[in-house]
Design a protein around this nucleic acid. Structure first.
Lengths: 158, 158
DNA sequence: CGGATAAATGAAAAGGTTTTTCAATAAGGG
DNA sequence: CCCTTATTGAAAAACCTTTTCATTTATCCG
């Protein structure tokens, strides 16, 4: 995890941005979170690391980190869940429907699919945004314990 | 297009909701739009069809239509672009980066990909949200005309 | 084809969230 | 260690969304 912090810190330095106490607190907060956090949540948690942390600074830092590619907004069909650390390169997030905990997946292989889309639509595809939702292992276990009388899962359009 | 309107009207009726003038104006506005519209845009355009259309009603109708599955929020990494009519079934949107015009794609085939994700993460996958961005045919043509001196397109992580 | 009734509407107000402004502060180069 | 400039927090402004409530309107039913 120290590596992940260093990599992000490096991005600030390389691009000529100062690594201030508030920014450090925000980065550490995001690294320590298991789920995407809203700006207000980041402020609350961040104040444990840097007591004066202001909400405005959270907004500004998120904007900057998005620019640097170290943070990404995570939203699904049901709305924006917040911001999460993004590893360098092209990754996607998998979010748990129940507890909103999130994991990153790298190396998605959508090339063929996107070729088909290009062909069918006439668009020149330049990017894509994919968020996957599901139940994390912990929430699955909880489900299994509570509903011994299985309420069958809808597997049609996942 | 009359069919598309009828199908949506049917959804209102079937679920016991009234087909009021404001709602009709909103549906027609969305059907006539080539790009996702924000609530404010829907109000503005909708007032050409029903002059008294209030913004509050737009919000309420969008919420209802989302519930009925006839409208979908469209957002990409760079923010929420608005709401667009959604065809029944599982579809995704392809949005033009330049003009934001949108087309729907049906029958996405992400099964294998999602199986891999499930395997790697331990999550039980229940849904996914995919938005594709690119340049529509018209904007590509415009580009070709303006930049005879091609500024090469970044094709790395699309 | 009205009239009754419950849903739906618009305007105003409230509630949040995000952005801007500006004087004070702190990071990091020299 | 000081100086310069970016960065910060607080307050206010700007926005966007939701709630409230009296009035209107679509649909059911006689």
């Amino acid at each position: 995890m120290a590596d992940r912090y260093e990599a992000i810190a490096e991005q600030f330095r390389v691009h000529g941005y100062k690594l201030t106490q508030p920014r450090r607190a925000i980065v550490q907060t995001l690294l320590g979170a298991a789920k995407p956090l809203s700006p207000a949540e980041i402020q609350q948690r961040g104040q444990k690391l840097y007591h004066e942390l202001g909400l405005v600074t959270v907004y500004r830092t998120l904007e900057l980190m998005e620019l640097l590619g170290t943070v990404r907004a995570v939203h699904l069909a049901d709305g924006c869940h917040g911001f999460a650390i993004a590893s360098p390169g092209h990754t996607h997030h998998v979010v748990c429907e129940r507890c909103h905990c999130v994991v990153e997946i790298a190396g998605c292989d959508l090339g063929d699919f996107l070729d088909t889309v290009a062909e069918r639509t006439g668009y020149a595809i330049t990017g894509h945004w994919l968020e996957v939702s599901g139940l994390c292992a912990a929430c699955q276990a909880q489900d299994a314990a509570e509903h011994t009388h299985d309420d069958s899962i809808d597997a049609t359009a996942r």
